[in-house]
Simulated assay, not measured.
Amino acid sequence: MTVQFGLFGVNLFTGAGAAGARHIAVLAEELGLESLWAVDRIVLPSGYETGYPYDESGKVMGGQEEFDVADPLVWLTFAAAVTVRIKLATGVAIPPLRNPVVLAKQVASLDALSAGRVLLGVGIGWLEEEYQAVGVPWSDRGRRLDDYVEALRALWRDTRATVHNGHVDFDNAISLPHPTGGSVPVVVSGNTPRAARRAARLGDGFFPAAKTPAELAPLLEILRTESQAAGGDPDAIEITVSYAGEPAALDPAADGFQNAFDDLSELSERFEKLGVARVLLPALPEHALRAVAEGLADRFGPA
């Protein structure tokens, strides 16, 4: 298996508008990238105190509070209409903040309209104030996610779905159309042992925020052990990681471009040896994305 490359954060900033969304979706497909990943942010309460776990500052976007983020499912539907091949992924949606029956309908509809190109990345999120704004309890978010995934899959699979668990309660619910392939792959995110165990139990894929192979390896060991203990096949769980280097360095106009590109390539090769299927690139300006994508295609082969 050769590692493939996707594009992350496509629905942010100028990508949230019609012209930017069309441009980035069409360009990514033209360049042979494998997937588009749209982030999820319903609201960012001003002055939030919850620490953002993926930056030393504890703040998302370096503390910037006001920036455009298009709804990921709406954005991916727009992208589906202007592309034909590229996969359409949430990176990641936060199901506990949504009604699972409505979410099942939205995701299945997008999958049917896009001829089976959807990947549903899911997570519990990190922002307690966002849960408060939506009116959802923060304390049971993990159990809520588990129960919602059960409901999603039942509604995608069964013509008359019945689910009774701690957070979902319905009988003989008909939700059509079903996804093109009978279901939608669920990619579980998170960078903790608990997330790895959840991916082993529930996931068709795992998307940890590991920056290096050394950070990833112990999570994959937990994933494999838990999957085997549950009678699953750990090799069937697709692994996705996101490149964590400085995006500005991947500009061919930058002095250190070649070193940054070599670092990206070598890091991707090391991830590939661990079984990673996909490395996500930042949403770069067109000239930079062209240079990076073409260089990666030369080194790893076309998608």
Rank of each mutant, 00 (worst) to 15 (best):
E266T: 13
L88H: 04
A260T: 06
A154H: 12
L103P: 09
R299V: 11
H164E: 14
R143Q: 14
R98W: 13
A108F: 04
G142M: 05
L110V: 09
F207C: 08
R98I: 07
P177G: 06
A200D: 09
H23D: 11
A112E: 05
G20L: 06
R85K: 14
N172R: 11
S114A: 01
P96A: 01
W75E: 00
N165Y: 11
A254T: 10
G203L: 00
P193A: 01
G15K: 05
A210M: 08
D158T: 00
D171W: 14
A288E: 04
V118F: 08
G63Q: 09
H178W: 10
V82R: 09
Y131T: 05
D40F: 07
I174F: 09
G121I: 00
A199S: 09
T159E: 13
M61G: 01
A112Y: 11
E266S: 13
E286D: 15
P234N: 06
L152G: 02
D255Q: 10
T14R: 11
A112I: 11
L152V: 13
A154F: 14
L44G: 11
F207V: 07
G295M: 05
A229L: 13
G20C: 02
S227V: 05
A229I: 08
A283D: 06
A199W: 06
A173F: 15
F5K: 08
L220N: 02
D298Y: 02
V10H: 08
A293K: 08
A38M: 03
G301D: 00
L216F: 14
E30Y: 10
L31N: 03
L219V: 10
G203D: 06
G9I: 02
D40N: 09
E29C: 01
D171G: 07
A161E: 06
A70F: 11
V69L: 13
P208S: 02
I222R: 10
A112P: 00
I124L: 00
A195V: 13
R198M: 07
A108K: 06
D262P: 00
A154G: 08
D55E: 14
L103C: 04
S189V: 03
A200G: 00
A291K: 04
T192S: 15
P72D: 01
V60R: 05
G275F: 06
V39S: 05
R299W: 07
G190Y: 08
V241R: 06
E29L: 05
S268K: 04
E246D: 12
L219I: 12
Q228R: 14
V69C: 14
G63R: 13
T14L: 02
R278P: 07
R194V: 14
L119A: 10
R117E: 06
D233Q: 03
S114Y: 06
T162K: 10
N172T: 04
M1S: 12
R299M: 04
Q106H: 00
F261Q: 03
R41P: 04
A283G: 01
